[in-house]
Nucleic acid binder design. Structure first.
Lengths: 256, 256
DNA sequence: CTTGACCCTAACCTTACGTCATAGTTTATC
DNA sequence: GATAAACTATGACGTAAGGTTAGGGTCAAG
């Protein structure tokens, strides 16, 4: 009956010697005997057990639970597996969302080469803070700041506004079309991020960073209350106005 | 200008006070001032920064990198995002495999109510060890043990063998059909696990646990070399024989 | 003046090992 | 038999992102 040294076991199984020491220490896999010098020796039984350990580890079970499985033969495996599957599916879903969000973000960053400060793009994704933040901003700054925002908006030239509006409508069209989606999908989150991004971009030209609060608090009200901005470049834009209003309302409902 | 205490910030953002302490400690989010008593006070700028932090955290970036993003405005975001996406996709793929494997395992466990010891089901999933293990077993036990295996197999009654064979063919049919899949998919891994499981189940009736080596080493050779077992219940079963042989060859090629 | 709610720092705990540091053992070679 | 190479052991410290007490200070209300 051959017995294996730590290094042999390590090489056979692809794990490290340290890992074997560790498994010994926590009682997950003990060598079947020690030499007088203290050297560990493993036998077939231990190799089999290690295979099982590696299998469970592959399924991402924490070592403590693996110990439990192996010690307790009456452990109900199916339930454990199903629990674990549920957890994995949740993780998968979350990763799906992350990937989708990242893709959106990348696309938008590539489109908008204007943007230089990446860290300015992502507010608005945390709803809770948004709520409080807007309320605080409104309390702190009041109506006259909104008027200021309005006057700054006026300064934008015809071309500038046209550009802005084009991107603006694109966002809001999609936002509008998807207004009934519930719950808020990552795609919509991304749209809203983009919405914020536009605002930031616009206000970046006149605002120093600590005035952003005003911009946030002001523009929401501004856009939804005053139809003038929808007509700014000379012609009436009923569709734009509608979208703008509905999308903003949607936006405000969900995020502010 | 309102300022927020740790608890307020924590409640607004949904993170813990300890987390804020920690972020302060590592320089990720410092309060804009401290009272004489040492109390932390956060302002709007800090809330904004926290929003960004939470966004990146949501995307699973480690805090160290987030610090880097926020300190270094010229950081190349798109590359970072794409790297991150790649990592996420890899994780997703891995989780897919895990879920698939778990599902298979669950299905098989539910089918086979005979099984009582869940920890006996999963050998054969680690190829490396399989290789070495079989070689060791063959060296250790030699041909006469295989003969012993054979004689034990004879003892199985007609009914027992019929049952065994039914499940056996089911496995091997599928294994055969999928014999050209490459690389070895988790589904096939599961089939092989099931194959091993059958062997274990069978040998469990006559073997003590440390004779499993013989069973493994022996049965592979046995089944592929001797066609008698395919005819055992009285009638010729050419299809069964073919599958058995091919599947075993496949199995041996890949795993032994 | 006391109670309760809040705040602080300091320090240890967690997972699953990696990475030395130091020292003893075995094996191969000269 | 000596020595060097390869292997082994234990012990301690480090990681990420905080959780969890412990002990003590601060602040507003009653």
């Amino acid at each position: 009956m051959k017995n294996y040294s730590v290094k042999e076991v390590a090489q056979l199984s692809g794990i490290s010697v340290r890992t074997l020491h560790y498994y010994d220490q926590i009682g997950l896999l003990k060598p079947y005997k020690r030499t007088e010098a203290g050297y560990r020796h493993y036998g077939h039984r231990e190799l089999l057990r290690l295979q099982q350990i590696l299998f469970y580890k592959e399924l991402d079970f924490p070592l403590k639970e693996i110990v439990a499985f192996l010690e307790e033969p009456e452990f109900h495996l199916i339930e454990a597996l199903e629990d674990h599957k549920t957890a994995l599916l949740a993780r998968q879903k979350r990763i799906d969302h992350l990937v989708e969000t990242i893709e959106k973000t990348i696309r938008q960053l590539k489109e908008d080469d204007i943007i230089t400060k990446p860290e300015m793009l992502y507010e608005g994704l945390a709803k809770e803070m948004g709520t409080t933040y807007r309320q605080a901003a409104i309390k702190a700054y009041g109506k006259e700041k909104i008027t200021h925002s309005e006057s700054e908006l006026m300064k934008l030239g015809k071309e500038g506004f046209k550009q802005l509006r084009a991107r603006w409508t694109a966002i809001n069209d999609e936002l509008f079309e998807r207004r009934e989606e519930s719950p808020i999908s990552p795609a919509i989150q991304a749209l809203i991020a983009r919405h914020y991004q536009l605002i930031r971009q616009f206000w970046g030209t006149v605002n120093s960073s600590d005035k952003q609060a005003e911009a946030y608090a002001g523009l929401g009200t501004l856009y939804t209350q005053d139809e003038r901005y929808c007509l700014r470049d000379g012609q009436a834009q009923p569709k734009f106005a509608t979208f703008l209003q509905k999308a903003m309302r949607h936006f405000v409902d969900y995020h502010l």
